[in-house]
């Protein structure tokens, strides 16, 4: 549905987006992650046709955003960063205006606007002037604008920014629901959100894609992913440590606590054994030596850890 091919954007001397390529299919929810200034918003602005790329192409639903902007833009619903609004309008008149720009008129317009108001929980403020709304309501109004024409493609730049916890949850549910039948790209700094709603995530740093995969795949990239945390009693810590290091699938062992008859630590597996093999070996070892295995936990890997490792790695 969305094809981004070798996209670059140069702002003066600064290369904000550097040769990014990816594609998003229908029914996919793609999360955009990356540190501040990574180039997420710039990429989204190029996809929506707001800024022209320095190099590269974007096609949305088969239409090149540069060559056939009207057709491509008609397929997109876009929530810009900071949710800009015409503050001299009311929520309702603003939504009517955007619906009309999308070519929705008459009775269809009325029902489209009402539906968007309902989905974004704006009933209470529908007739209120936009410049008197609180930040969260402004954000939701702009979100309503992006879905009013039931677009095939949704581009949402930090859709949950400034929302209260309940609303964050509602918006996540909304994205997940819409994602089933549409193509969604959204950016966020909240990593739990990625796990909760994305079918795929891309991490951008300094304008480049540094990781691309499902949230589970990405989690497994964390250095601790697959590591087995153990707590074993019954032998001197140093003895347990040397035995653990000898296990066939262990690479290294990190000590957390070591005592007369206690060892607490983390055993890191070989690349080939990030499934349960290592945990099995540890269990066998402990059982064979009649040691007391008090804790045995395989680390799933954490997104925040992976995120930090990947984005710091690029820096250095």
């Amino acid at each position: 549905m969305i094809e981004v091919i070798r996209l670059s954007k140069q702002f003066g001397p600064k290369l904000a987006v550097d040769n990014i390529s990816f594609s998003v299919a229908k029914g996919e929810v793609l999360g955009f992650l990356g540190p501040n200034g990574a180039g997420k918003s710039t990429t989204m602005r190029m996809i929506t046709g707001f800024i022209p790329p320095t190099r590269g192409t974007v096609t949305v639903g088969g239409h090149d955003i540069q060559k056939a902007p009207i057709q491509a833009k008609a397929k997109i619903g876009y929530l810009p960063e900071n949710a800009p609004l015409y503050s001299d309008m009311t929520v309702e008149s603003f939504l009517r205006f955007t619906a009309e720009l999308r070519g929705i008129t008459g009775a269809a317009q009325k029902s489209a606007v009402n539906k968007a108001i309902e989905i974004c929980f704006l009933e209470k403020v529908a007739r209120q002037s936009l410049d008197t709304l609180s930040k969260g309501f402004r954000h939701r109004t702009c979100l309503a604008q992006s879905i009013v024409h039931d677009p095939e493609v949704l581009i949402l730049d930090e859709p949950t920014d400034g929302l209260d916890p309940n609303q964050k949850q509602e918006v996540r549910n909304l994205i997940r629901r819409l994602g089933a039948t549409k193509t969604v790209i959204f950016s966020t700094h909240i990593l739990e959100e990625v796990e909760a709603v994305c079918s795929r995530a891309i991490i951008i740093d300094q304008g480049k894609v540094v990781a691309d995969g499902t949230p589970d795949e990405l989690k497994r990239r964390a250095s601790r992913a697959g590591a087995v945390k153990v707590r074993i009693r019954g032998l001197a810590g140093s003895g347990i440590l040397s035995e653990l290091e000898k296990l066939p699938h262990a690479v290294s062992v990190e000590t957390i606590e070591s005592g007369d008859s206690l060892f607490v630590g983390r055993v890191f597996p070989k690349k080939s054994a990030i499934d349960g093999t290592l945990a099995g070996e540890i269990y066998q070892f402990a059982a064979g030596r009649q040691l007391q295995l008090q804790e045995l936990a395989v680390d799933e890997g954490r997104l925040d850890e992976m995120f930090r490792e990947i984005t710091v790695q690029v820096r250095s």
Partner: peptide, 14 residues
């Protein structure tokens, strides 16, 4: 100033 230009120019109009 308001950034609404980003909304206006991403609408399907020229």
């Amino acid at each position: 100033r308001e950034g609404t230009i980003e909304l206006l120019l991403t609408m399907p109009i020229s």
